[in-house]
Nucleic acid binder design. Structure first.
Lengths: 145, 145
DNA sequence: TCTTACTTTATAATCGTTATAATTAGTCTA
DNA sequence: TAGACTAATTATAACGATTATAAAGTAAGA
């Protein structure tokens, strides 16, 4: 059993356990998210699967990404650009994004708990979470310029 | 001379120095951004000024926000929700956002330089900048619930 | 099998933002 | 001040991502 098929089974069990029906479309979207190792947009997923599901509606992709999000399997990444990207939740990590080509690379760093607790004491908020992205130029683009 | 009128003059001088013409609309948008002390959307600015400029086009707001951004006077904040917000650049700071009412509060914290340099060495990127937002529930909303 | 709720599909609607073209206004020079 | 050039504004249409709607299909339980 491969690494990603184990992840897929685990995700499917997770969904089943909260009463989500596993349709062929859902399976395929999940599989694509896990195997692609990238952070695709809804439209990229839609296009990647149109060979297998010529009749699938783009709404199905959006609907199911929402279902996966609600189940905690997927995170929606919203950067400045036009469309959201979707990331399978594995372990917590940040992202570093190339200003030149848009590539997104995972970046592991211990959670910034001190920042959260300071923010809490300074602002009086109950802090729940934070997000951080780092921007720069990736090695490939550095080489090209 | 008030605090904000000094800021407005400084911003206008800045714009003039790079050859940007100061029109009444530009003055008003800038003034609103500086005086409102909030982080308005383009549409909020448009609505706030329609009393003074009944014929102003929404495109004018967008155009000028882009001009201000290019001059380094304004930052565009893109969160998950539908529309961008715009923030006058003063000193560097982060934002803390209420999950319940959407309020955005400035939060000063020393720049996370260590994170940037670690990211640089781990990923091979040339790091230029980062963004961080903290999410939680603001004191007002805590009281209400 | 019947029923019920869920899912997918096709399509239209929505909404923030951008592009276009025409008009207006500022600025420079003669 | 007139004339000419350029930039800015306006009105409007276009665009693209996402969401809503309604109809048709599908799974699962009684």
């Amino acid at each position: 059993m491969t690494m990603s098929s184990a992840k897929i089974s685990a995700a499917i069990d997770n969904l089943k356990s909260v009463g989500v029906r596993i349709t062929p479309q859902r399976h395929a979207i999940l599989e694509h998210l896990i195997q692609s190792m990238s952070h695709p947009t809804a439209d990229e997923i839609y296009k990647a699967l149109e060979g297998k599901f010529p009749n699938m509606s783009v709404a199905t992709v959006y609907n199911n990404l929402r279902v996966f999000k609600e189940a905690g399997l997927v995170k929606e990444l919203t950067y400045g650009d036009s469309s959201s990207r979707f990331d399978c939740v594995t372990t917590d990590h940040y992202h570093i994004i190339c200003d030149s080509c848009g590539k997104i690379v995972d970046f592991h760093y211990p959670g910034l708990d001190e920042v959260e607790s300071l923010a809490e004491s300074v602002t009086g908020f109950d802090v729940g979470r934070h997000r951080m992205e780092i921007y720069g130029v990736c090695p490939d683009c550095k080489r090209k310029h």
